[in-house]
Design a protein around this nucleic acid. Sequence first.
DNA 1: CTTACTGCAAATCTTTTGCAACGTC
DNA 2: GACGTTGCAAAAGATTTGCAGTAAG
Lengths: 143, 143
Amino acid sequence: MQNKFDNYCELLQKESYKITPQRQIILKTLLDHAEKHLSAEELHYIVKQKDPEIGLATIYRTLEIFDNLNILHKIDFGDGCIRYEFTDQDAHTHHHLICIKCGRVIEVNDDLLETLETWIEKRTQFHITDHQLKFFGYCKNCQ
Amino acid sequence: MQNKFDNYCELLQKESYKITPQRQIILKTLLDHAEKHLSAEELHYIVKQKDPEIGLATIYRTLEIFDNLNILHKIDFGDGCIRYEFTDQDAHTHHHLICIKCGRVIEVNDDLLETLETWIEKRTQFHITDHQLKFFGYCKNCQ
DNA sequence: CTTACTGCAAATCTTTTGCAACGTC
DNA sequence: GACGTTGCAAAAGATTTGCAGTAAG
């Protein structure tokens, strides 16, 4: 985990962004909760426990930068706020199961979609660069 | 198209919603632009040309009802507003190609996802009731 | 005539922006 | 020391809600 942190800091530096304490705290927090798909608000709540001074605007601005640098990307689970996920986690073959009762988000990996993608590209002349696949239903506990 | 309109009106009636002129105009407009995935704002703009009195709140309230009755459902193309699509159009085997340059939304049909769904259900014990698959990339014109 | 529906305005919620003060490099 | 970054407060944009008046059944 530490090396990820360092890598992302290097990337920031390389792109001439400054390594501020705020950005370090935010990045650490994101890494610590990588599987949680935090929203800006949730992230802010956690971050404030480490440094109560940090404002919500800084959270949004930092997430924006991380998104631009492709460190993470936005996902929407339909709950009214934007959530974030590390891009390196994605690997293009990773989907989400969203429980419509308890809201739990489960991740699944597969590569069946590759086939579909190739087929669609051939048929529609649309050049696909990314996809999002979400399944809605009931998780094991909520059935 | 007329029979769809009548069917949905019947459904409204059956669920003891009143068939008001506003709801009729909204429903007609939605049916006329079924392939457009209108947002509330866009819908309002069109509807106001037929009846300038209709307020945006009515649009939202009507869309809410239609969503609850499963006449249509929300989709999010990541452009900051909720869009709507008729549920009967979906047929569970219909996906969206979203051009990240011009924003055009193209629809594709396929049933390859069925296989994947069955496989996931078996493996994760998650009961899938719906899915959303979006592909991002460049359309023919924007490549 | 009852009860749901409407339009308006105000409220809410998430996200963005302007700006003066601040901190990194 | 320059310039990017921050916190705050205000703004913006989408959606919701309260309310008094209106209309469908």
